[in-house]
């Protein structure tokens, strides 16, 4: 465990807590893409298949349970909570995310570490995580203004992946064995997707203006 990875995990945890806070405090999920949350739930379920078979550490197991549990809670809230579900932007959240699932699965069938059930689903979850934010970014573009909690949510998600890239660079120099090209390349693609959001987020922060994404 190095500081970059720990910081990355904490940013990831904060991003999910910010989202839960927004939904719980405002009883509203406007501006949040349910499709992105569904993709993240699928990412965690397919990535943590080894949750009950390989014990790495208490930290590792607890974080996996928290990520799966909190994302499932957000998906449940946005679909079934009587008050929250009314504020879901159903007509704006129209990204066809099933294509992302299909494309990532096909890619995982060709690009993986080992041709085993667990490795293919792990590679699938890595690819899917890289593109899972797309429905959310499209929704933000369509809804124009970004309320600050949702903006912070995307910001922390981007920071989490950016720190993981620092973690891979660190491990590349510190460890002999480096066999995580799948995560590395996918993580770079994912962070690049955030770049434009970061640019507008930074501009709005610098001008102390409301964050507006160009339509």
């Amino acid at each position: 465990m190095n500081i970059f990875r720990f910081a990355g995990d904490m940013f990831h945890l904060i991003s999910i807590l910010v989202l839960l806070l927004k939904i719980y405090a405002t009883k509203s999920c406007s501006g949040i893409s349910l499709k992105t949350q569904e993709l993240y739930a699928l990412v965690f379920v397919t990535r943590y298949l080894d949750l009950f078979t390989d014990f790495i550490s208490v930290y590792n197991t607890v974080m996996k349970l928290v990520f799966i549990g909190s994302t499932a809670a957000i998906v449940w809230c946005m679909q079934w909570h009587p008050v929250v579900k009314r504020s879901y932007d159903r007509e704006l959240d129209t990204f066809r995310h099933y294509f992302l699932v299909g494309a990532c699965f096909v890619l995982a069938l060709f690009l993986h570490e080992n041709f085993t059930f667990q490795e293919i689903f792990w590679a699938f979850s890595i690819y899917l995580e890289a593109v899972a934010i797309l429905p959310q970014l499209v929704l933000l573009q369509r809804s124009g203004n970004v309320d600050n909690l949702t903006g912070q949510y995307v910001f922390f998600l981007g920071a989490y992946r950016a720190f993981y890239i620092l973690n891979w660079i660190y491990r590349y120099f510190m460890e002999q064995r480096f066999s995580r090209w799948i995560s590395c390349i996918s993580g770079l693609v994912q962070t690049a997707l955030y770049a434009d959001f970061f640019y507008y987020y930074f501009l709005s922060w610098k001008n102390n203006a409301k964050l507006h994404l160009p339509a």
């Binding site: 990875r5 590792n60 085993t116 667990q118 792990w122 066999s179």
Partner: peptide, 10 residues
């Protein structure tokens, strides 16, 4: 390497 992806990362 033969044991697949790094298991210790989230």
């Amino acid at each position: 390497d033969n044991d697949g992806h790094e298991k210790d990362e989230l």
